[in-house]
Design a protein around this nucleic acid. Structure first.
Length: 460
RNA sequence: GUGGAUGUAGUUCAGUCGGUUAGAACGUCGGAUUGUGGUUCCGAAGGUCGUGGGUUCGAAUCCCAUCUUCCACCCCA
């Protein structure tokens, strides 16, 4: 007896119906990426752990899938080390590779490794799965696809603007109402300096990021519990509750952060970026959100996040500028900015809002019925004729009952059935059935030829 | 990594207090109809009750472990 096969926690099979919908998403994203001059690259599923570790913070390191070394992986390990049972130390000795956690760090590695073949600014897109050893939930998987577009080697804020446009074009194309939130790490940094806790930036950003979800009081509580002084939290509160439109918020912040050099630089960047955005006709709402503070510790300038307006599923896209990501791989002074879209969550949003439309049908337009050995040569001629005209068609492979063949056309939503049995062949005819109306017409082979060339071809 | 819920046919779900052979609907397959799908009628197949232990005369039902899925944290797309 075999036990039923299963797949690992947090992974999924994609059946044909799902793949057609997923491809629709990928095709839309690729089309827009290409429209803006980004070219595709791919990197391996696994990277050396030395490439991955330490890039995502402590939490990120924990979520890395590690790959057990091949061969005699115990050879360099003493019995003492084994019996000490120190997981992390042992893991470092047993594993030298891991599955990629995102596409940005492998991209940084790629840029450093290929620096002599690349001319800057370098624009690339990358659509591949990533893996995280997280505990799965709805909209959260252990294997999922990211769709990244990055430009590296240019400081211009036109790049940030371009990424906002790309996000806007993609979601307009998919028909998802979105809000694109923008913030700037330098402003957050200035804020930390302003309240006298400049070295606690990470704790502060992680805490205030939750203000939407948990409220102001919970954020204050978290800040205090992390050891931020009461006076600092008090100083921060009026800033977090700043109201008004983007321009007004920026004006207010300019007064507050006037003696914070970094903060002022961030505000200037935001003004420039929103200046570009203000002149563009956009589908999405774009807003400055001071509490947007994504935890990734490599962002240094702009921070971007995209959320669905209609479905609460976390962010469906995010990105930002990282001034020195390649620095850890030995290439200093190269700035990059990128954005990433989560195809799996976008899928869930489209499904939830019923926005896939006709994408799900198989696409076959014509089914030729199989009447048996004597009629096969004739059926194949019709088949060739359809293929030559570029019409997606199938010949039913087995000479089974017509009832069964008809049912196949029905469940696969094939709109046209072509029949040519002994009767038709004798009279040089073909019978065409329209599956939605049930209407059926017999025509001469000559008439069928023009039917294929005109009626069928037009509808593709 | 922490805490909580869940698992019965391909799918959605019943299954009483622990008690005979675990049921339904939908789907699948066959037939009514050997040249005609969707509707209808008849029939059939399909279950180690997530897995492994334990308690009991007896376990889908109670206990323990483990896995899955889901939820709240953490973090994130």
């Amino acid at each position: 007896m075999f036990s039923k096969p299963t797949i690992p926690k947090g992974t999924r099979d994609f059946s044909a119906g799902e793949m057609l919908k997923r491809d629709y998403i990928f095709d839309t994203i690729k089309r827009i990426f290409r429209l803006y001059g980004y070219n595709p690259i791919e990197t391996p599923a696994m990277e050396n752990l030395s490439t991955l570790l330490g890039k995502y913070g402590e939490e990120g390191d924990r979520l890395l899938f590690r790959i057990l070394d091949s061969g005699d992986f115990l050879s360099g390990i003493s019995d003492d080390e084994l019996s000490a049972r120190e997981q992390n130390r042992l893991a470092m000795k047993l594993c030298s590779k891991g599955l990629r956690y995102d596409l940005t760090v492998p991209f940084a590695r790629y840029v450093v490794q290929h620096r002599n073949e690349i001319t800057f600014p370098f624009k690339r897109y990358q659509i591949q799965p990533v893996w995280r050893a997280d505990r799965p939930q709805k909209g959260r998987y252990r294997e999922f696809f990211q769709c990244d577009a990055d430009v590296i080697g240019s400081d211009s804020l036109l790049n940030e603007y371009e990424l906002v446009r790309i996000a806007d074009d993609i979601f307009a194309g998919l028909g998802i109402a979105t809000v694109i939130k923008i913030n700037n790490r330098k402003v957050l940094s200035g804020l930390a300096g302003f309240i006298g806790e400049a070295d606690r930036l990470t704790d502060i950003t992680i805490a205030i990021d939750k203000i939407d979800k948990t409220g102001l009081d919970a954020v204050k509580e978290e800040l205090l519990s992390k050891g931020i002084s009461g006076s600092a939290v008090e100083k921060l509160e009026p800033v977090l509750t700043l109201a008004g439109n983007t321009g007004k918020k920026l004006d207010e912040l300019e007064k507050i952060l006037s003696d914070q050099e970094t903060g002022m630089k961030g505000l200037e960047e935001l003004r420039t970026l929103f200046g570009y955005i203000g002149g563009a006709p956009l589908w999405s709402d774009v807003e400055f959100d001071l509490t947007l503070a994504r935890g990734l510790n490599y962002y240094t300038g702009a921070i971007i996040e995209v959320k669905s307006r209609d479905v609460a599923i976390g962010s469906i896209g995010g990105g930002g500028r990282y001034d020195n990501l390649t620095g850890v791989f030995g290439l200093e002074g190269i700035s990059g900015v990128g954005i990433s879209f989560g195809a799996d969550r976008i899928y869930d949003v489209l499904e939830h809002l019923n926005l896939f439309g006709k994408v799900s049908s198989s696409g076959t337009r014509v089914l030729i019925l199989n009447f048996g050995q004597n009629e096969t040569a004739n059926a194949l001629r019709i088949f060739d004729q359809l293929k030559r005209s570029g019409i997606r068609s199938e010949l039913y492979p087995d000479p089974v009952k017509l009832k069964k063949q008809m049912a196949y056309a029905d469940v696969n939503k094939i709109p046209i059935v072509v029949m040519a049995g002994a009767e038709e062949i004798k009279n040089n005819q073909v019978t065409v059935k329209n599956m939605s109306t049930g209407e059926q017409t017999s025509m001469s082979t000559g008439e069928f030829e023009s039917f294929v060339a005109n009626d069928l071809k037009e509808k593709i």
